[in-house]
Computed example of a mutant assay.
Amino acid sequence: MMAHHGWPTAEGIEQLLREALAPTRLEVIDESAAHAGHAGANGLGHGTHFRVRIAAPALAGLPRVAAHRLVYDALRPAFAAGLHALALEVLPA
């Protein structure tokens, strides 16, 4: 889950989401380098800002807020480890 600096990785985020939500489609992109120098960035250029595109039966038909809550709940360990921002796109299952 953690990179060698202790920050979340795309692979770790993907693993958490696969275990919690069994997605049919999942894309995790580390966008941290684009946020270097921004409040909450770690100065290392990775592990703080991610974009997630996900489709999962568990999210199908849920209101947007409820679907986002399930994803954020699954990623609590990543936020505890330094994930600062998440751009989330819930796709049709």
Rank of each mutant, 00 (worst) to 15 (best):
G82F: 10
L21D: 02
R53Y: 05
A20Q: 11
V90L: 02
N42H: 03
A22T: 11
Q15R: 15
A34S: 11
N42P: 10
P92D: 15
A74E: 06
V71W: 07
M1G: 14
V71D: 14
G43T: 06
G6H: 02
L83H: 12
L59F: 07
T48S: 00
F79L: 12
E31W: 03
F50G: 09
Y72E: 15
D73P: 14
A74S: 05
R76W: 11
G45Y: 02
G6T: 11
G40W: 01
G6Y: 12
G45S: 06
E11R: 11
R64M: 07
A85S: 07
L91D: 04
R64W: 10
A3D: 15
I29Q: 09
G43R: 02
D73I: 07
E27F: 01
L91V: 12
A58W: 12
G6W: 03
R53D: 04
F50K: 06
G37F: 02
V90M: 01
E14T: 09
R53G: 09
A74F: 07
P23Q: 01
H4M: 13
G43F: 00
G45Q: 06
H4I: 11
A81I: 07
P23C: 05
G37I: 00
P77C: 03
A66E: 13
R53M: 10
D73N: 08
A93M: 10
R64L: 11
A36T: 01
F79E: 01
F79V: 13
I29W: 03
P57G: 14
E14W: 10
A10C: 01
A66P: 15
L75H: 05
A22S: 07
R53K: 05
R18L: 03
G82M: 12
R18I: 08
P8C: 03
A10L: 03
A55N: 12
S32E: 02
G61I: 11
H68S: 14
A74H: 06
E19T: 10
